[in-house]
Amino acid sequence: MRSELFSRALVRFGLLLGTGLCFSVAQADTTLLNVSYDVSRELYKDINPAFSAHWQAGHGGEKVTVNQSHGGSSKQAMSVAAGLEADVVTMNQSPDIDILVTQGGLVAADWKKRFPHEAAPYTTLSVFLVRKGNPKGIRDWSDLTRPDIQVIVPNPKTSGNGRYTYLAAWGYALEQAKGDEAKAKAFVKALFRNVPVLDGGGRGATTTFTQRDIGDVLVTFENEAVLIGKEVGGAQFEVVYPSLSIEAAAPVAVVERVVDKRGSRALATAYLNFLFSPAGQEIIAKHSFRPRDPAILKKYAARFPALRVFTVENRLGGWAKVQQTHFADGGIYDQIVEQ
C-alpha cells in the first residue's frame, strides 16, 4: 500500500511536470487542448499535424500545437467538468457532452446545432467479429441468442461500446417483434445470457476475444474490428455485418468557458470545422470511421459496406430516455441480468 502511494505520488509529480512543460510550450506557440475518448488516439495523431499545417497556411505562418488527452469517455467528461481546461471535447456518445451543459454550463446548450451533422463528424457501427471461416455460421443478431454461442461484449454499465451493442440488439429485436417490448426484453436477455465475461471497455473485450480465445463472436465498433484485422493478424478473424445495426455518432463541441478565458474561440472552432472539411474527412475514412461527406464515403465505399442502420435519436427516443429506461439502476438492462 505504501509503495502504491509512493508510485501515485510519483505519477502526480510527473503530471505536474508535464503540465509545466505544456505551459512553457504555450508561451512559445498557440496551443489547443482536445480532450477525447480512448480509441480516438490514432485518429487525432494524424488529424492534428494536418490541422496545424492547414492553420499555418491560412494565418501567416502562426504555429499551432494541439495537445491531446485520452481516456474513457465518461471519465474524460468528468475531468473537464472538474476543471481540466479543454478547448474542445471530442467524445463517442452525446451524453458525455450533455453532462458538460448541465454541470456548470461549460458547453452551449445548443451544441449540436453549432456544427454540421448534429456536430458529429463521423460515425461507426456495431459489427461482429468472428473466428476465421465463421465456424458457427453467425450471420445476424438472432444467431447470438443460440445456446451454443458465446458472445463477447464490453460491460454496458461502464462502456459506450457496450451500450451501443446492447441498444443495437434491442433495436433489432424490437423490429423483429414489431414493437413488442416484452419480446425484445426476452431477446436481449437471451443474448446476454451467452456473455461469459463483461470487460470494462472495448479494448478489454478485444483482448479477451483475440488473446484469450474466449467466445465465438465479438460485438464491437467497426473501426475496432478493422483495427484488429490489421494489428493482430486478419488471417484469424473476419468481420460479419448484421442485417441491422446502430449508428454511433462521435460528437464534438467547443468548451465555451475555456475558450472565452483563453481567447482561443476562433482556433477551437476552426479545429472542429477542419474535421468536417474534405481533408479531415479523408483522414477519418482512413481510420475506418465512416465519414459524413458523401464524396469521401463513396471514394472509400469498399471499406464501408452499405448497411441498414438506426440511431438512438430516430428510433429509441434520444439518449436521455435511453439512459432512463435502459441503463439507470433498476432499468431494463439491470432487469435482464438479474437471475
Binding site: 460491460n155 470494462g200 439512459q323
Partner: peptide, 24 residues
C-alpha cells in the same frame, strides 16, 4: 481484468462504485 465481472457472480464492490460514477 481477471474477474469476468458477471453480475451476481464475480462483481466486486469497487466495480459497483465505478459503475455508478460512469453514470454520473
Amino acid at each position: 481484468f481477471i474477474a469476468g465481472n458477471m453480475p451476481f457472480v464475480s462483481e466486486i464492490t469497487p466495480l459497483m462504485i465505478i459503475t455508478k460514477l460512469e453514470q454520473y
